[in-house]
Lab assay of single mutants.
Amino acid sequence: GKELVLALYDYQEKSPREVTMKKGDILTLLNSTNKDWWKVEVKATANDKTYERQGFVPAAYVKKL
């Protein structure tokens, strides 16, 4: 199945390749080969529509579930 990670801290994206997350968010882990930056998929809701974004977050800010 898919691997999930838990956001340990809030993170505000600093570039278009990154994604914003809030502490407590559960994210889908896409790639953890880089030890510093993990690629995740974030589900977000805006205007009653759910959309998914993929991007990088600092590996130290998340932990595998």
Rank of each mutant, 00 (worst) to 15 (best):
G1A: 13
G1I: 12
G1L: 11
G1E: 12
G1P: 11
K2A: 11
K2S: 10
K2V: 12
K2W: 11
K2C: 15
K2P: 12
E3R: 11
E3V: 14
E3L: 12
E3T: 13
L4K: 10
L4E: 07
L4M: 11
L4D: 04
L4H: 09
L4I: 09
V5G: 10
V5I: 07
V5F: 05
V5C: 13
V5K: 00
V5L: 10
V5Q: 00
V5S: 02
V5T: 02
V5W: 06
V5E: 00
L6H: 04
L6S: 04
L6N: 02
L6Q: 09
L6F: 07
L6V: 14
L6C: 10
L6R: 07
A7H: 01
A7Q: 01
A7P: 01
A7E: 00
L8C: 12
L8V: 06
L8Y: 03
L8H: 03
L8Q: 04
L8W: 03
Y9K: 13
Y9E: 08
Y9W: 09
Y9N: 08
Y9G: 06
Y9R: 15
Y9V: 10
D10F: 04
D10L: 02
D10H: 05
D10I: 01
D10Q: 03
Y11C: 04
Y11R: 01
Y11K: 01
Y11S: 00
Y11E: 02
Y11M: 00
Q12D: 14
Q12S: 11
Q12R: 10
Q12K: 12
Q12P: 05
Q12E: 13
Q12F: 14
Q12N: 14
E13L: 06
E13I: 04
E13G: 14
E13C: 12
E13T: 07
E13H: 07
E13W: 05
E13A: 15
K14Q: 13
K14L: 08
K14G: 07
K14S: 10
S15H: 11
S15P: 02
S15W: 05
S15D: 09
S15V: 04
S15Q: 06
P16C: 09
P16K: 09
P16T: 09
P16Y: 08
P16M: 10
P16A: 12
P16R: 09
P16W: 08
P16Q: 09
P16N: 10
R17G: 13
R17I: 12
R17E: 12
R17L: 14
R17P: 05
R17M: 13
E18W: 02
E18K: 04
E18M: 04
E18A: 05
E18G: 09
E18Q: 11
E18Y: 05
E18H: 05
E18R: 04
V19C: 07
V19T: 05
V19Y: 02
V19W: 03
T20M: 04
T20C: 06
T20V: 02
T20S: 15
T20R: 05
T20A: 06
T20I: 04
T20L: 01
M21T: 05
M21D: 00
M21L: 07
M21S: 00
M21Q: 01
M21V: 10
M21N: 00
K22T: 08
K22F: 10
K22Q: 07
K22Y: 09
K22R: 11
K23I: 04
K23G: 05
K23W: 04
K23R: 10
K23E: 06
K23Q: 11
K23A: 12
K23D: 02
G24F: 04
G24C: 11
G24V: 02
G24D: 04
G24I: 02
G24A: 02
G24P: 00
G24H: 04
G24Q: 02
D25S: 06
D25R: 01
D25K: 01
D25C: 08
D25Y: 04
D25N: 06
D25E: 09
I26Q: 04
I26R: 05
I26G: 00
L27F: 06
L27R: 00
L27I: 07
T28R: 10
T28I: 14
T28V: 15
T28L: 15
T28F: 10
T28H: 09
T28D: 05
T28W: 13
T28A: 09
T28C: 14
L29D: 02
L29M: 04
L29I: 03
L29T: 01
L29W: 00
L29P: 00
L29N: 00
L29F: 02
L30A: 02
L30S: 00
L30E: 02
L30Y: 03
N31L: 07
N31Y: 06
N31W: 06
N31H: 06
N31F: 06
N31T: 08
S32N: 07
S32M: 09
S32W: 08
S32H: 06
S32T: 08
S32C: 13
S32G: 10
S32E: 14
T33V: 10
T33Y: 10
T33A: 13
N34K: 05
N34Y: 06
N34P: 04
N34M: 08
N34S: 09
N34F: 07
N34C: 10
N34D: 14
N34W: 05
K35D: 10
K35E: 09
K35V: 09
K35I: 10
D36Y: 15
D36F: 14
D36H: 14
D36V: 14
D36G: 08
D36L: 13
D36I: 13
W37K: 02
W37H: 02
W37Q: 02
W37T: 02
W37R: 03
W38S: 02
W38M: 01
W38L: 04
W38N: 00
W38Q: 00
W38G: 00
W38F: 06
W38H: 02
W38A: 03
K39R: 10
K39V: 14
K39L: 15
K39P: 00
K39H: 09
K39C: 15
V40G: 00
V40Q: 00
V40M: 00
V40H: 00
V40F: 01
E41M: 13
E41F: 05
E41A: 14
E41W: 06
E41S: 14
E41V: 12
E41H: 07
E41L: 12
V42P: 06
V42T: 15
V42N: 07
V42K: 15
V42C: 12
V42W: 06
V42R: 11
V42S: 11
V42F: 08
K43M: 15
K43C: 15
K43N: 12
K43D: 08
K43V: 14
A44K: 12
A44S: 13
A44T: 14
T45G: 10
T45R: 11
T45K: 11
T45A: 10
T45M: 13
A46R: 13
A46D: 14
A46Y: 14
A46H: 14
A46V: 15
A46N: 14
A46I: 15
A46K: 13
N47I: 10
N47R: 08
N47Y: 10
N47P: 08
N47L: 12
D48V: 06
D48W: 06
D48A: 08
D48L: 09
D48I: 05
K49E: 12
K49I: 15
K49Q: 13
K49Y: 12
K49V: 14
K49G: 13
T50R: 08
T50C: 15
T50N: 11
T50L: 11
T50S: 11
T50Y: 10
T50E: 15
Y51Q: 10
Y51R: 10
Y51V: 14
Y51H: 09
Y51E: 10
Y51D: 08
Y51G: 11
E52H: 14
E52T: 15
E52W: 15
E52C: 15
E52V: 15
E52D: 14
R53P: 01
R53F: 06
R53G: 05
R53H: 06
R53D: 04
R53N: 06
R53I: 08
R53A: 06
R53E: 03
R53T: 06
Q54E: 08
Q54M: 08
Q54V: 13
Q54K: 08
Q54F: 06
Q54D: 05
Q54R: 10
Q54A: 12
Q54T: 11
Q54Y: 07
G55Y: 05
G55H: 02
G55M: 05
G55C: 05
G55V: 04
F56T: 03
F56D: 04
F56H: 04
F56E: 04
F56S: 02
F56Y: 14
F56Q: 03
V57S: 00
V57D: 03
V57T: 02
V57M: 03
V57Q: 00
P58R: 03
P58K: 04
P58G: 03
P58H: 02
P58Y: 04
A59Y: 03
A59R: 09
A59L: 04
A59C: 07
A60W: 10
A60F: 08
A60K: 15
Y61A: 11
Y61N: 07
Y61L: 15
Y61D: 04
Y61P: 02
Y61W: 06
Y61M: 14
V62Q: 05
V62C: 15
V62T: 03
V62Y: 01
V62F: 05
K63I: 14
K63S: 10
K63E: 14
K63C: 15
K64S: 08
K64C: 10
K64N: 07
K64R: 12
K64H: 08
K64W: 07
L65W: 07
L65I: 14
L65N: 02
L65H: 05
L65V: 11
L65G: 03
L65E: 03
